[in-house]
Design a binder for these strands. Structure first.
Lengths: 166, 166
DNA sequence: CTATATGCAAAACGTTTGCATCCCT
DNA sequence: AGGGATGCAAACGTTTTGCATATAG
């Protein structure tokens, strides 16, 4: 999903709700879906600062409010990966992935595993429920040294969709 | 792990750190490990209120500070199951489980699945990491009506109906 | 035009911390 | 006795909200 599609999808959502695509909302969405930053999971503050860099008049509240709308419109997902801050990640409709965070350097790796998801549904079913959503975060440690920049040393990119550093 | 063992284990930890087992710390630990409440995952506020019921002089800060010590001592685990609040759960050394939360009523069910855990290790290994820890939360919905006797639907205050609205 | 959105600053929330006092060991 | 520990309230950082003004459609 490129920037233009994201803004367009957001606009569709806004219109369906009788809301408006303002200059600020478009800008925030553009910055959030900026291809150069797609791998990270910004906090509201980080996103606010990036937005501010392009338009210093945008206020804190607008970023919070817009992020909430993006979540409602399924274009963003809040994620509490670490411990404290809420991070948001750009969402590509239809795709799903979980996270792996390196305990040494904090690198966040995305992955998906169909087999695990199948088992999750089984577990829910076993308790009489239907699986509606899930979150899974693995805390991992490198085997050997952690070289920060490329913590995935030796990680021959197998498991597809593992959009780690690139 | 019963109440007495928990307090004792906490005391061991405290002594190892040159800290003291005070009346308040013992009380908070007792309340936290109260068998009648072992299934739930109290927020700091909930625990504070329960403690306050037994000794109204205990302050907010002490509960926060003690909970942090319990976490350091591996007797408690912070868990962000729903969306907002941090919930703490009594930890039994050697045991592990994940959570399933009902989107309708907020009921939290604990489960463990060896197969999923095995796959998690595989995923980590596939990326060149060793699995150190993980958290997994399933958001589920009852099939049809929630017929569970322990369905918390309508139970204000406790476990807020996670997720749902999206 | 009118409903919605904005920016600001203040409020609200959970959590932490400084400090004078208190209490374990 | 003395180094923790406590309770209180003030401080904190994040997120929300009230309000007067600005703007999209």
């Amino acid at each position: 999903m490129n920037v233009k599609d994201a803004v367009s999808a957001f606009n569709d959502y806004l219109q369906s709700q009788g809301l408006k695509l303002t200059r600020q909302r478009a800008l925030i969405t553009e910055v959030f879906f900026d291809p150069a930053k797609r791998a990270d999971h910004p906090t509201v503050e980080e996103l606010y600062l990036r937005v501010k860099g392009r338009d210093s008049t945008v206020g804190h509240a607008t970023v919070y409010r817009t992020l909430k709308l993006l979540v409602d419109g399924k274009l963003a997902t809040p994620n509490r990966i670490g411990e404290d801050l809420t991070r948001y990640e750009p969402e590509v409709p239809g795709e799903h992935h979980d996270h792996m965070v390196c305990a040494e350097c904090g690198l966040i790796i995305e992955f998906e595993d169909a087999e695990i998801e199948r088992l999750q549904e089984q577990v829910a079913a076993r308790h009489g429920f239907a699986l509606r959503d899930h979150s899974m975060n693995l805390v991992v440690a490198p085997r050997g040294d952690c070289a920060r920049a490329d913590c995935l040393k030796g990680a021959a990119g197998e498991a597809r969709g593992a959009g780690a550093a690139r």
